[in-house]
Write a protein that binds this DNA or RNA. Sequence first.
DNA 1: TAATAGCTGTACGGTAGCGTACCGTCGGAC
DNA 2: GTCCGACGGTACGCTACCGTACAGCTATTA
Lengths: 242, 242
Amino acid sequence: MTRKKTATVSPTPAVLGQNLLLRHLTSPDRQTLLETGKVVRLELREKVYDANTPINHVYFPLTCVLSVVAEMQDGGMIEVGTVGYEGVSALPLILGATTSANHSYCQVPGEAVMIPSRLFARLMEENLDFRKRLDRYLQAYINLLGQLAACNRLHSLYERCARWILLTHDRVRSQQVHLTQEFLGMMLGSRRSGVTIAASTLKAAGFITYAHGIITILDRPGLEDAACECYSLAQKQFGLLI
Amino acid sequence: MTRKKTATVSPTPAVLGQNLLLRHLTSPDRQTLLETGKVVRLELREKVYDANTPINHVYFPLTCVLSVVAEMQDGGMIEVGTVGYEGVSALPLILGATTSANHSYCQVPGEAVMIPSRLFARLMEENLDFRKRLDRYLQAYINLLGQLAACNRLHSLYERCARWILLTHDRVRSQQVHLTQEFLGMMLGSRRSGVTIAASTLKAAGFITYAHGIITILDRPGLEDAACECYSLAQKQFGLLI
DNA sequence: TAATAGCTGTACGGTAGCGTACCGTCGGAC
DNA sequence: GTCCGACGGTACGCTACCGTACAGCTATTA
Protein backbone atom coordinates (compact mmCIF):
# COMPACT_ATOMS: atom_id res chain seq x y z
CA MET A 1 0.00 0.00 0.00
CA THR A 2 2.85 2.33 0.78
CA ARG A 3 4.26 3.48 -2.49
CA LYS A 4 7.72 4.91 -2.52
CA LYS A 5 8.09 7.25 -5.41
CA THR A 6 11.21 6.54 -7.38
CA ALA A 7 12.59 8.51 -10.28
CA THR A 8 10.97 7.14 -13.43
CA VAL A 9 13.48 5.68 -15.82
CA SER A 10 13.24 4.90 -19.50
CA PRO A 11 13.80 1.27 -20.39
CA THR A 12 16.88 0.01 -22.20
CA PRO A 13 16.82 -2.65 -24.94
CA ALA A 14 18.03 -5.18 -22.37
CA VAL A 15 15.09 -4.28 -20.15
CA LEU A 16 12.59 -4.82 -22.94
CA GLY A 17 14.09 -8.26 -23.45
CA GLN A 18 12.93 -9.29 -19.99
CA ASN A 19 9.28 -9.28 -21.01
CA LEU A 20 8.16 -11.87 -23.51
CA LEU A 21 5.76 -9.52 -25.25
CA LEU A 22 8.16 -6.60 -25.51
CA ARG A 23 11.12 -8.75 -26.45
CA HIS A 24 9.99 -9.27 -30.01
CA LEU A 25 8.94 -5.71 -30.66
CA THR A 26 10.78 -4.21 -33.62
CA SER A 27 11.35 -0.61 -34.62
CA PRO A 28 9.73 1.82 -34.91
CA ASP A 29 7.49 0.54 -32.12
CA ARG A 30 10.49 -0.62 -30.18
CA GLN A 31 11.85 2.89 -30.34
CA THR A 32 8.53 4.31 -29.22
CA LEU A 33 8.61 2.09 -26.18
CA LEU A 34 12.18 3.01 -25.31
CA GLU A 35 11.17 6.65 -25.39
CA THR A 36 7.65 6.62 -23.99
CA GLY A 37 7.72 3.63 -21.63
CA LYS A 38 8.73 4.02 -18.02
CA VAL A 39 10.40 1.46 -15.82
CA VAL A 40 8.55 1.58 -12.52
CA ARG A 41 8.79 -0.41 -9.35
CA LEU A 42 5.58 -1.93 -8.02
CA GLU A 43 5.39 -2.55 -4.31
CA LEU A 44 3.63 -5.38 -2.53
CA ARG A 45 -0.15 -5.00 -2.83
CA GLU A 46 0.16 -1.88 -4.90
CA LYS A 47 -2.93 -1.44 -7.01
CA VAL A 48 -2.67 -2.01 -10.75
CA TYR A 49 -6.33 -1.37 -11.52
CA ASP A 50 -9.73 -1.59 -9.86
CA ALA A 51 -12.81 -3.45 -11.03
CA ASN A 52 -15.14 -1.54 -13.32
CA THR A 53 -12.87 1.46 -13.40
CA PRO A 54 -11.15 2.80 -16.51
CA ILE A 55 -7.71 1.32 -16.98
CA ASN A 56 -5.33 4.10 -17.91
CA HIS A 57 -1.98 2.42 -17.57
CA VAL A 58 -0.61 -0.83 -18.85
CA TYR A 59 2.18 -2.74 -17.13
CA PHE A 60 4.53 -5.25 -18.70
CA PRO A 61 6.07 -7.09 -15.72
CA LEU A 62 9.82 -7.62 -15.70
CA THR A 63 10.52 -8.95 -12.22
CA CYS A 64 7.22 -8.30 -10.48
CA VAL A 65 4.19 -10.59 -10.46
CA LEU A 66 0.63 -9.29 -10.61
CA SER A 67 -2.57 -10.90 -9.39
CA VAL A 68 -6.03 -10.66 -10.86
CA VAL A 69 -8.51 -10.98 -8.04
CA ALA A 70 -12.27 -11.48 -8.00
CA GLU A 71 -14.18 -9.84 -5.18
CA MET A 72 -17.42 -11.45 -4.09
CA GLN A 73 -20.46 -9.70 -2.69
CA ASP A 74 -19.55 -10.70 0.85
CA GLY A 75 -16.15 -9.10 0.46
CA GLY A 76 -14.35 -12.40 0.00
CA MET A 77 -11.47 -12.32 -2.45
CA ILE A 78 -9.84 -14.98 -4.52
CA GLU A 79 -7.23 -14.97 -7.22
CA VAL A 80 -8.40 -15.79 -10.71
CA GLY A 81 -5.21 -15.08 -12.63
CA THR A 82 -1.57 -14.09 -12.41
CA VAL A 83 0.59 -12.06 -14.74
CA GLY A 84 4.37 -12.21 -14.87
CA TYR A 85 7.12 -11.39 -17.33
CA GLU A 86 5.36 -13.49 -19.92
CA GLY A 87 2.46 -11.11 -20.21
CA VAL A 88 0.80 -7.80 -19.62
CA SER A 89 -1.53 -6.42 -16.98
CA ALA A 90 -4.31 -5.16 -19.18
CA LEU A 91 -5.93 -8.30 -20.52
CA PRO A 92 -9.40 -6.80 -21.07
CA LEU A 93 -7.94 -4.08 -23.28
CA ILE A 94 -6.90 -6.74 -25.76
CA LEU A 95 -10.55 -7.31 -26.60
CA GLY A 96 -11.41 -3.65 -26.69
CA ALA A 97 -12.82 -3.26 -23.18
CA THR A 98 -11.80 -0.25 -21.11
CA THR A 99 -12.42 -1.79 -17.70
CA SER A 100 -12.01 -5.15 -15.99
CA ALA A 101 -14.52 -7.15 -13.97
CA ASN A 102 -11.78 -7.83 -11.45
CA HIS A 103 -9.16 -6.07 -9.40
CA SER A 104 -5.47 -6.37 -10.00
CA TYR A 105 -2.55 -5.65 -7.75
CA CYS A 106 1.05 -6.50 -7.17
CA GLN A 107 1.65 -9.91 -5.63
CA VAL A 108 5.45 -9.94 -5.78
CA PRO A 109 7.25 -6.59 -5.75
CA GLY A 110 9.49 -5.76 -8.65
CA GLU A 111 9.82 -3.80 -11.83
CA ALA A 112 7.56 -3.34 -14.82
CA VAL A 113 7.45 -1.25 -17.95
CA MET A 114 4.50 1.09 -17.89
CA ILE A 115 2.83 2.74 -20.86
CA PRO A 116 -0.43 4.64 -21.28
CA SER A 117 -3.42 2.58 -22.37
CA ARG A 118 -3.79 4.74 -25.46
CA LEU A 119 -0.34 3.78 -26.67
CA PHE A 120 -1.12 0.14 -25.97
CA ALA A 121 -4.25 0.41 -28.08
CA ARG A 122 -2.32 2.06 -30.88
CA LEU A 123 0.36 -0.61 -30.87
CA MET A 124 -2.30 -3.34 -31.04
CA GLU A 125 -3.95 -1.61 -33.95
CA GLU A 126 -0.86 -0.91 -36.00
CA ASN A 127 1.48 -3.78 -35.22
CA LEU A 128 0.09 -7.07 -36.48
CA ASP A 129 2.85 -9.19 -34.99
CA PHE A 130 2.35 -7.63 -31.56
CA ARG A 131 -1.37 -8.13 -31.93
CA LYS A 132 -0.90 -11.80 -32.71
CA ARG A 133 1.37 -12.29 -29.74
CA LEU A 134 -1.21 -10.69 -27.51
CA ASP A 135 -3.90 -12.96 -28.91
CA ARG A 136 -1.78 -16.00 -28.21
CA TYR A 137 -1.07 -14.75 -24.72
CA LEU A 138 -4.74 -14.15 -24.05
CA GLN A 139 -5.54 -17.62 -25.32
CA ALA A 140 -3.01 -19.12 -22.92
CA TYR A 141 -4.50 -17.05 -20.12
CA ILE A 142 -8.00 -18.31 -20.94
CA ASN A 143 -6.80 -21.90 -21.00
CA LEU A 144 -5.26 -21.47 -17.59
CA LEU A 145 -8.39 -19.80 -16.31
CA GLY A 146 -10.42 -22.84 -17.31
CA GLN A 147 -7.89 -25.10 -15.67
CA LEU A 148 -8.06 -22.98 -12.53
CA ALA A 149 -11.83 -23.34 -12.42
CA ALA A 150 -11.39 -27.11 -12.54
CA CYS A 151 -8.50 -27.06 -10.08
CA ASN A 152 -10.42 -25.06 -7.51
CA ARG A 153 -13.09 -27.71 -7.50
CA LEU A 154 -11.10 -30.91 -7.80
CA HIS A 155 -7.71 -30.48 -6.17
CA SER A 156 -6.70 -30.32 -2.53
CA LEU A 157 -5.36 -27.30 -0.76
CA TYR A 158 -2.01 -29.06 -0.44
CA GLU A 159 -1.71 -29.52 -4.20
CA ARG A 160 -2.88 -26.01 -4.92
CA CYS A 161 -0.41 -24.54 -2.47
CA ALA A 162 2.44 -26.30 -4.23
CA ARG A 163 1.15 -25.21 -7.61
CA TRP A 164 0.88 -21.60 -6.55
CA ILE A 165 4.35 -21.47 -5.07
CA LEU A 166 5.84 -23.01 -8.20
CA LEU A 167 4.04 -20.65 -10.55
CA THR A 168 5.22 -17.68 -8.57
CA HIS A 169 8.72 -19.02 -8.31
CA ASP A 170 8.90 -19.40 -12.08
CA ARG A 171 8.34 -15.72 -12.47
CA VAL A 172 10.83 -14.57 -9.90
CA ARG A 173 14.60 -14.63 -10.25
CA SER A 174 15.21 -15.57 -6.64
CA GLN A 175 14.87 -18.80 -4.68
CA GLN A 176 13.01 -16.78 -2.12
CA VAL A 177 9.54 -15.38 -2.42
CA HIS A 178 8.07 -12.83 -0.07
CA LEU A 179 4.76 -14.36 0.85
CA THR A 180 2.71 -14.70 4.02
CA GLN A 181 0.41 -17.62 4.64
CA GLU A 182 -2.41 -15.20 5.25
CA PHE A 183 -1.88 -13.79 1.76
CA LEU A 184 -1.54 -17.20 0.15
CA GLY A 185 -4.74 -18.27 1.86
CA MET A 186 -6.57 -15.36 0.31
CA MET A 187 -5.18 -16.12 -3.11
CA LEU A 188 -6.29 -19.73 -2.85
CA GLY A 189 -9.65 -18.89 -1.31
CA SER A 190 -8.86 -20.84 1.87
CA ARG A 191 -8.27 -20.23 5.57
CA ARG A 192 -4.85 -19.26 6.76
CA SER A 193 -4.84 -22.15 9.22
CA GLY A 194 -5.44 -24.56 6.36
CA VAL A 195 -2.54 -23.09 4.44
CA THR A 196 -0.33 -23.46 7.50
CA ILE A 197 -1.02 -27.17 7.60
CA ALA A 198 -0.38 -27.59 3.88
CA ALA A 199 2.77 -25.49 4.09
CA SER A 200 3.99 -27.38 7.16
CA THR A 201 3.61 -30.62 5.25
CA LEU A 202 5.64 -29.24 2.36
CA LYS A 203 8.21 -28.08 4.87
CA ALA A 204 8.35 -31.43 6.63
CA ALA A 205 8.91 -33.07 3.26
CA GLY A 206 11.89 -30.79 2.77
CA PHE A 207 10.56 -29.05 -0.32
CA ILE A 208 10.48 -25.57 1.16
CA THR A 209 11.24 -23.58 4.26
CA TYR A 210 9.00 -20.94 5.55
CA ALA A 211 9.63 -18.13 7.97
CA HIS A 212 8.00 -14.80 8.59
CA GLY A 213 6.71 -14.00 5.18
CA ILE A 214 9.59 -15.49 3.25
CA ILE A 215 9.33 -18.82 1.57
CA THR A 216 12.44 -20.52 0.22
CA ILE A 217 12.31 -23.29 -2.36
CA LEU A 218 14.68 -26.13 -1.48
CA ASP A 219 13.59 -29.03 -3.67
CA ARG A 220 11.91 -27.99 -6.86
CA PRO A 221 11.27 -31.47 -8.30
CA GLY A 222 9.78 -32.52 -5.01
CA LEU A 223 7.49 -29.53 -5.05
CA GLU A 224 6.46 -30.36 -8.61
CA ASP A 225 5.46 -33.83 -7.51
CA ALA A 226 3.40 -32.34 -4.74
CA ALA A 227 1.58 -29.98 -7.08
CA CYS A 228 -1.41 -30.98 -9.16
CA GLU A 229 -1.22 -31.43 -12.89
CA CYS A 230 -2.35 -27.84 -13.30
CA TYR A 231 1.19 -26.66 -12.75
CA SER A 232 2.75 -28.57 -15.62
CA LEU A 233 -0.14 -27.56 -17.78
CA ALA A 234 0.55 -23.93 -17.01
CA GLN A 235 4.22 -24.42 -17.77
CA LYS A 236 3.26 -25.89 -21.10
CA GLN A 237 0.99 -22.98 -21.94
CA PHE A 238 3.69 -20.45 -21.14
CA GLY A 239 6.24 -22.48 -23.06
CA LEU A 240 4.19 -21.84 -26.17
CA LEU A 241 4.63 -18.12 -25.78
CA ILE A 242 8.41 -17.92 -26.12
CA MET B 1 -24.19 -40.27 -28.69
CA THR B 2 -26.81 -41.59 -31.08
CA ARG B 3 -27.03 -39.14 -33.91
CA LYS B 4 -30.04 -39.23 -36.08
CA LYS B 5 -29.18 -37.85 -39.46
CA THR B 6 -31.68 -35.26 -40.55
CA ALA B 7 -31.83 -33.50 -43.86
CA THR B 8 -29.64 -30.41 -43.58
CA VAL B 9 -31.61 -27.24 -44.03
CA SER B 10 -30.52 -23.74 -44.88
CA PRO B 11 -31.40 -21.13 -42.28
CA THR B 12 -34.05 -18.48 -42.81
CA PRO B 13 -33.68 -14.86 -41.70
CA ALA B 14 -35.93 -15.64 -38.72
CA VAL B 15 -33.60 -18.46 -37.75
CA LEU B 16 -30.57 -16.19 -37.83
CA GLY B 17 -32.42 -13.84 -35.50
CA GLN B 18 -32.42 -16.51 -32.81
CA ASN B 19 -28.68 -16.24 -32.27
CA LEU B 20 -27.36 -13.01 -30.82
CA LEU B 21 -24.24 -13.01 -32.96
CA LEU B 22 -25.96 -13.83 -36.22
CA ARG B 23 -28.88 -11.52 -35.57
CA HIS B 24 -26.93 -8.38 -36.35
CA LEU B 25 -25.17 -9.70 -39.42
CA THR B 26 -25.88 -7.55 -42.49
CA SER B 27 -25.57 -8.34 -46.16
CA PRO B 28 -23.55 -9.52 -47.97
CA ASP B 29 -22.38 -11.68 -45.04
CA ARG B 30 -25.94 -12.31 -44.01
CA GLN B 31 -26.63 -13.64 -47.48
CA THR B 32 -23.53 -15.85 -47.32
CA LEU B 33 -24.80 -17.37 -44.11
CA LEU B 34 -28.26 -17.98 -45.48
CA GLU B 35 -26.71 -19.85 -48.38
CA THR B 36 -23.74 -21.60 -46.78
CA GLY B 37 -24.93 -22.16 -43.22
CA LYS B 38 -26.80 -25.31 -42.27
CA VAL B 39 -29.39 -25.70 -39.57
CA VAL B 40 -28.49 -28.91 -37.75
CA ARG B 41 -29.90 -30.65 -34.73
CA LEU B 42 -27.46 -31.57 -32.00
CA GLU B 43 -28.35 -34.52 -29.82
CA LEU B 44 -27.62 -34.98 -26.14
CA ARG B 45 -23.90 -35.51 -25.58
CA GLU B 46 -23.13 -35.17 -29.24
CA LYS B 47 -19.55 -34.05 -29.70
CA VAL B 48 -18.88 -30.50 -30.89
CA TYR B 49 -15.10 -30.73 -30.80
CA ASP B 50 -12.35 -32.60 -28.99
CA ALA B 51 -9.42 -31.18 -27.07
CA ASN B 52 -6.29 -30.49 -29.07
CA THR B 53 -7.94 -31.52 -32.30
CA PRO B 54 -8.50 -29.20 -35.26
CA ILE B 55 -11.88 -27.52 -35.10
CA ASN B 56 -13.45 -27.69 -38.53
CA HIS B 57 -17.00 -26.64 -37.85
CA VAL B 58 -18.48 -23.75 -35.96
CA TYR B 59 -21.91 -23.87 -34.31
CA PHE B 60 -24.13 -20.92 -33.46
CA PRO B 61 -26.70 -22.37 -31.01
CA LEU B 62 -30.35 -21.54 -31.55
CA THR B 63 -32.15 -23.77 -29.09
CA CYS B 64 -29.38 -26.13 -28.00
CA VAL B 65 -26.87 -25.54 -25.22
CA LEU B 66 -23.25 -26.59 -25.45
CA SER B 67 -20.79 -27.39 -22.68
CA VAL B 68 -17.08 -26.77 -22.59
CA VAL B 69 -15.52 -29.45 -20.44
CA ALA B 70 -12.05 -29.86 -19.00
CA GLU B 71 -10.72 -33.38 -18.67
CA MET B 72 -8.19 -34.07 -15.97
CA GLN B 73 -5.40 -36.61 -16.07
CA ASP B 74 -7.35 -39.04 -13.91
CA GLY B 75 -10.24 -38.91 -16.35
CA GLY B 76 -12.35 -36.63 -14.18
CA MET B 77 -14.40 -34.11 -16.08
CA ILE B 78 -15.85 -30.77 -15.13
CA GLU B 79 -17.61 -28.04 -16.99
CA VAL B 80 -15.69 -24.81 -17.48
CA GLY B 81 -18.10 -23.00 -19.76
CA THR B 82 -21.44 -23.07 -21.50
CA VAL B 83 -22.55 -21.70 -24.83
CA GLY B 84 -26.13 -20.91 -25.77
CA TYR B 85 -27.94 -18.75 -28.27
CA GLU B 86 -25.92 -15.77 -27.11
CA GLY B 87 -22.69 -17.14 -28.51
CA VAL B 88 -20.74 -19.50 -30.66
CA SER B 89 -19.01 -22.80 -30.08
CA ALA B 90 -15.58 -21.97 -31.38
CA LEU B 91 -14.19 -19.55 -28.83
CA PRO B 92 -10.52 -20.36 -29.42
CA LEU B 93 -10.87 -19.55 -33.12
CA ILE B 94 -11.62 -15.95 -32.18
CA LEU B 95 -8.01 -15.54 -31.09
CA GLY B 96 -6.58 -17.37 -34.03
CA ALA B 97 -6.11 -20.80 -32.48
CA THR B 98 -7.15 -23.86 -34.45
CA THR B 99 -7.74 -26.18 -31.49
CA SER B 100 -9.12 -25.96 -27.97
CA ALA B 101 -7.61 -27.13 -24.69
CA ASN B 102 -11.00 -28.54 -23.75
CA HIS B 103 -13.74 -30.75 -25.08
CA SER B 104 -17.14 -29.49 -26.06
CA TYR B 105 -20.40 -31.32 -26.49
CA CYS B 106 -24.10 -30.84 -26.48
CA GLN B 107 -25.65 -30.42 -23.05
CA VAL B 108 -29.22 -29.67 -24.09
CA PRO B 109 -30.38 -31.02 -27.45
CA GLY B 110 -31.61 -28.56 -30.02
CA GLU B 111 -30.75 -26.69 -33.16
CA ALA B 112 -27.73 -24.70 -34.24
CA VAL B 113 -26.44 -23.02 -37.37
CA MET B 114 -23.27 -24.69 -38.56
CA ILE B 115 -20.64 -23.18 -40.83
CA PRO B 116 -17.12 -24.26 -41.76
CA SER B 117 -14.32 -22.80 -39.67
CA ARG B 118 -12.80 -21.24 -42.75
CA LEU B 119 -15.90 -19.19 -43.38
CA PHE B 120 -15.93 -18.16 -39.73
CA ALA B 121 -12.34 -16.97 -40.03
CA ARG B 122 -13.16 -15.04 -43.19
CA LEU B 123 -16.14 -13.34 -41.60
CA MET B 124 -14.01 -12.30 -38.62
CA GLU B 125 -11.38 -10.88 -40.90
CA GLU B 126 -13.66 -8.98 -43.23
CA ASN B 127 -16.54 -7.90 -41.05
CA LEU B 128 -15.43 -5.45 -38.40
CA ASP B 129 -18.79 -5.26 -36.66
CA PHE B 130 -18.99 -9.04 -36.39
CA ARG B 131 -15.43 -9.09 -35.12
CA LYS B 132 -16.28 -6.55 -32.44
CA ARG B 133 -19.31 -8.52 -31.33
CA LEU B 134 -17.19 -11.63 -31.06
CA ASP B 135 -14.63 -9.76 -28.99
CA ARG B 136 -17.33 -8.57 -26.64
CA TYR B 137 -18.73 -12.05 -26.39
CA LEU B 138 -15.33 -13.51 -25.63
CA GLN B 139 -14.79 -10.87 -22.98
CA ALA B 140 -18.08 -11.81 -21.32
CA TYR B 141 -17.08 -15.46 -21.50
CA ILE B 142 -13.74 -14.70 -19.83
CA ASN B 143 -15.44 -12.73 -17.08
CA LEU B 144 -17.75 -15.64 -16.40
CA LEU B 145 -14.85 -18.05 -16.46
CA GLY B 146 -13.15 -16.04 -13.74
CA GLN B 147 -16.34 -15.97 -11.75
CA LEU B 148 -16.67 -19.73 -12.17
CA ALA B 149 -13.19 -20.26 -10.80
CA ALA B 150 -14.18 -18.26 -7.73
CA CYS B 151 -17.58 -19.93 -7.49
CA ASN B 152 -16.11 -23.43 -7.59
CA ARG B 153 -13.99 -22.60 -4.59
CA LEU B 154 -16.32 -20.48 -2.50
CA HIS B 155 -19.92 -21.56 -3.06
CA SER B 156 -21.81 -24.61 -1.89
CA LEU B 157 -23.07 -27.38 -4.08
CA TYR B 158 -26.62 -26.27 -3.31
CA GLU B 159 -25.98 -22.77 -4.63
CA ARG B 160 -24.13 -24.01 -7.65
CA CYS B 161 -26.88 -26.45 -8.51
CA ALA B 162 -29.41 -23.63 -8.52
CA ARG B 163 -27.10 -21.44 -10.58
CA TRP B 164 -26.56 -24.13 -13.16
CA ILE B 165 -30.24 -24.94 -13.55
CA LEU B 166 -31.05 -21.26 -13.97
CA LEU B 167 -28.35 -20.65 -16.55
CA THR B 168 -29.51 -23.62 -18.57
CA HIS B 169 -33.15 -22.63 -18.22
CA ASP B 170 -32.36 -19.18 -19.58
CA ARG B 171 -31.15 -20.71 -22.77
CA VAL B 172 -34.02 -23.07 -23.32
CA ARG B 173 -37.54 -22.17 -24.41
CA SER B 174 -39.21 -24.76 -22.21
CA GLN B 175 -39.93 -24.93 -18.48
CA GLN B 176 -38.49 -28.42 -18.60
CA VAL B 177 -34.88 -29.37 -19.03
CA HIS B 178 -33.71 -32.86 -19.81
CA LEU B 179 -31.05 -33.44 -17.22
CA THR B 180 -29.99 -36.34 -15.00
CA GLN B 181 -28.43 -35.81 -11.61
CA GLU B 182 -25.50 -37.93 -12.69
CA PHE B 183 -24.87 -35.53 -15.55
CA LEU B 184 -25.34 -32.44 -13.39
CA GLY B 185 -22.90 -33.89 -10.90
CA MET B 186 -20.28 -34.25 -13.58
CA MET B 187 -20.83 -30.70 -14.79
CA LEU B 188 -20.43 -29.37 -11.27
CA GLY B 189 -17.51 -31.62 -10.42
CA SER B 190 -19.40 -33.31 -7.58
CA ARG B 191 -20.83 -36.71 -6.67
CA ARG B 192 -24.26 -37.66 -7.86
CA SER B 193 -25.36 -38.37 -4.30
CA GLY B 194 -24.42 -34.85 -3.32
CA VAL B 195 -26.44 -33.45 -6.19
CA THR B 196 -29.42 -35.56 -5.11
CA ILE B 197 -29.36 -33.93 -1.69
CA ALA B 198 -29.07 -30.43 -3.12
CA ALA B 199 -31.79 -31.15 -5.68
CA SER B 200 -34.06 -32.67 -3.03
CA THR B 201 -33.71 -29.53 -0.99
CA LEU B 202 -34.66 -27.40 -3.97
CA LYS B 203 -37.59 -29.73 -4.56
CA ALA B 204 -38.71 -29.61 -0.95
CA ALA B 205 -38.64 -25.82 -1.15
CA GLY B 206 -40.96 -26.02 -4.13
CA PHE B 207 -38.58 -24.41 -6.61
CA ILE B 208 -38.36 -27.39 -8.94
CA THR B 209 -39.60 -30.88 -9.50
CA TYR B 210 -37.38 -33.64 -10.61
CA ALA B 211 -38.16 -37.00 -12.15
CA HIS B 212 -36.29 -39.42 -14.32
CA GLY B 213 -34.02 -37.07 -16.15
CA ILE B 214 -36.45 -34.22 -16.47
CA ILE B 215 -36.30 -31.20 -14.26
CA THR B 216 -39.16 -28.71 -14.21
CA ILE B 217 -38.80 -25.18 -12.93
CA LEU B 218 -41.73 -24.18 -10.72
CA ASP B 219 -40.56 -21.08 -8.90
CA ARG B 220 -37.99 -19.06 -10.73
CA PRO B 221 -37.57 -16.23 -8.18
CA GLY B 222 -37.18 -18.82 -5.46
CA LEU B 223 -34.51 -20.57 -7.44
CA GLU B 224 -32.72 -17.27 -7.99
CA ASP B 225 -32.63 -16.70 -4.27
CA ALA B 226 -31.15 -20.13 -3.80
CA ALA B 227 -28.42 -19.53 -6.37
CA CYS B 228 -25.19 -17.73 -5.60
CA GLU B 229 -24.45 -14.25 -6.87
CA CYS B 230 -22.69 -15.82 -9.85
CA TYR B 231 -26.00 -16.30 -11.57
CA SER B 232 -27.06 -12.66 -11.58
CA LEU B 233 -23.55 -11.74 -12.61
CA ALA B 234 -23.81 -14.04 -15.60
CA GLN B 235 -27.18 -12.57 -16.48
CA LYS B 236 -25.62 -9.13 -16.40
CA GLN B 237 -22.78 -10.17 -18.66
CA PHE B 238 -25.14 -11.65 -21.22
CA GLY B 239 -27.35 -8.60 -20.98
CA LEU B 240 -24.48 -6.55 -22.30
CA LEU B 241 -24.41 -8.61 -25.48
CA ILE B 242 -27.88 -7.82 -26.79
C1' DT C 1 16.84 -3.35 25.32
C1' DA C 2 12.13 -3.51 25.61
C1' DA C 3 7.83 -3.13 23.45
C1' DT C 4 5.15 -4.07 19.51
C1' DA C 5 3.27 -5.84 15.48
C1' DG C 6 3.19 -9.35 12.25
C1' DC C 7 3.58 -14.10 11.23
C1' DT C 8 3.21 -19.05 12.22
C1' DG C 9 1.81 -23.26 14.84
C1' DT C 10 -1.79 -25.61 16.84
C1' DA C 11 -6.12 -27.10 18.68
C1' DC C 12 -10.83 -28.39 18.29
C1' DG C 13 -15.62 -28.74 17.43
C1' DG C 14 -18.38 -28.40 13.29
C1' DT C 15 -19.75 -29.37 8.53
C1' DA C 16 -19.97 -30.09 3.53
C1' DG C 17 -19.23 -33.24 0.60
C1' DC C 18 -16.63 -37.71 -0.67
C1' DG C 19 -16.84 -42.57 -1.84
C1' DT C 20 -19.43 -46.29 -1.94
C1' DA C 21 -23.12 -49.22 -1.56
C1' DC C 22 -27.80 -50.67 -1.81
C1' DC C 23 -32.46 -50.35 -2.84
C1' DG C 24 -36.85 -48.56 -4.74
C1' DT C 25 -39.19 -46.82 -8.66
C1' DC C 26 -40.35 -45.56 -13.07
C1' DG C 27 -40.30 -45.89 -18.15
C1' DG C 28 -39.48 -48.15 -22.29
C1' DA C 29 -38.63 -52.44 -24.95
C1' DC C 30 -40.23 -56.77 -26.11
C1' DG D 1 -47.73 -57.64 -18.76
C1' DT D 2 -43.03 -58.57 -17.75
C1' DC D 3 -38.44 -57.66 -17.80
C1' DC D 4 -34.63 -54.67 -17.74
C1' DG D 5 -32.03 -50.68 -17.39
C1' DA D 6 -31.77 -46.02 -16.02
C1' DC D 7 -32.54 -42.84 -12.52
C1' DG D 8 -33.20 -41.12 -7.90
C1' DG D 9 -33.28 -41.58 -2.66
C1' DT D 10 -30.76 -42.82 1.22
C1' DA D 11 -27.29 -44.34 4.47
C1' DC D 12 -22.87 -44.14 6.63
C1' DG D 13 -18.14 -43.92 7.75
C1' DC D 14 -14.55 -40.81 6.29
C1' DT D 15 -11.82 -36.74 5.07
C1' DA D 16 -10.65 -32.13 4.07
C1' DC D 17 -11.38 -28.06 5.40
C1' DC D 18 -13.96 -24.35 7.95
C1' DG D 19 -14.22 -21.00 11.67
C1' DT D 20 -12.28 -19.47 15.48
C1' DA D 21 -9.32 -18.93 19.16
C1' DC D 22 -5.03 -18.67 21.44
C1' DA D 23 -0.19 -19.02 22.16
C1' DG D 24 4.60 -18.50 20.77
C1' DC D 25 8.11 -16.73 17.93
C1' DT D 26 10.84 -13.26 15.30
C1' DA D 27 11.87 -8.91 13.07
C1' DT D 28 11.14 -4.14 13.52
C1' DT D 29 10.68 0.00 15.90
C1' DA D 30 10.94 2.99 19.82
